[in-house]
């Protein structure tokens, strides 16, 4: 059984068809890295997986549950998927600790003291416990992104979605964020990672998916896709970024 499955997903913004029929199947515990040129639809695909964008057609499943089924409670399904954004999107009016503990209390109805204790532990795991009382504006981008990862993990999600999470960071801050993601992958978390970090895809990914112009051009184990791509489009893309 798959953890996340997308079937024939199409997404159209006006006349612009961003996704033209994408099938993706992610197994539990698998780390899938999605690469491709900008505008290829990889971020849109990721956002379709938790319905931040509603697919124009096609179906999305989380485990056995279909998110795209009519009348389904999207909020309830969405809390089972964690998401981390390129621009962090931490809540600036809340402390770091509150950022992490807020949703477990308000969405899951957990006890406040317990949720805060768990938030501490998560912040410790991402190396941010000493900043728990600060507001996000006082943190560097890399620190904010690690808090954002802890915030998503606080919901105890079945899988995590990462949307170019290192693209807005200064190069020297990328390493810490990738280290946290690597830890997660090693702990067995199911992950879909849209990324430009080919090193990360090669070392941490179980599978690499190359997208271009709204379709999956080819996919396979990292060594094959990054080392010996079959499609001309993949070769051209890799020659530019590697």
């Amino acid at each position: 059984m798959s953890a996340i499955r997308a079937e024939a997903v199409h997404k159209r913004f006006g006349d612009n068809e961003v996704l033209r029929g994408v099938d993706l199947d992610v197994a539990p515990g698998e780390v899938v890295c999605v690469i491709g040129p900008s505008g290829s639809g990889k971020s849109t695909l990721l956002r379709c997986l938790n319905l931040l964008e509603r697919p124009t057609s096609g179906r999305v499943f989380l485990g056995d549950d279909e998110l795209t089924a009519p009348g389904v409670s999207v909020d309830a399904l969405r809390r089972r998927l964690g998401m981390v954004f390129q621009q962090f999107n931490l809540f600036p009016h809340r402390t770091v600790l509150d950022n992490v503990a807020l949703a477990p209390v308000t969405v899951l109805g957990r006890d406040k003291a317990e949720a805060r204790a768990d938030a501490w532990e998560l912040l410790r795991q991402v190396g941010m416990a000493d900043k728990a009382a600060e507001h996000p504006a006082r943190l560097s981008g890399g620190q904010q992104q690690r808090v954002a990862i802890a915030r998503a993990l606080a919901m105890k999600p079945e899988a995590m979605l990462f949307d170019e999470v290192t693209s807005a960071l200064d190069p020297e801050l990328v390493k810490d964020v990738l280290a946290v993601m690597r830890q997660l992958a090693e702990a067995g978390m199911t992950m879909v990672v849209v990324t430009h970090e080919m090193g990360f895809a090669r070392e941490v990914g179980d599978r690499v998916v190359f997208m271009d112009e709204g379709v999956i051009v080819e996919e396979g184990v990292p060594a094959q896709i990054l080392g010996a791509p079959k499609a001309e489009r993949t070769r051209r893309f890799l020659s530019r970024v590697l």
């Binding site: 938790n50 931040l52 909020d75 309830a76 969405r78 809390r79 089972r80 998927l81 964690g82 998401m83 954004f85 621009q87 999107n89 931490l90 809540f91 807020l102 949703a103 308000t106 969405v107 899951l108 954002a148 915030r151 998503a152 919901m155």
Partner: peptide
């Protein structure tokens, strides 16, 4: 992005 982050947490 603030709304999206909140919604992605299940709010």
């Amino acid at each position: 992005g603030q709304t999206e982050a909140a919604r992605s947490l299940g709010m």
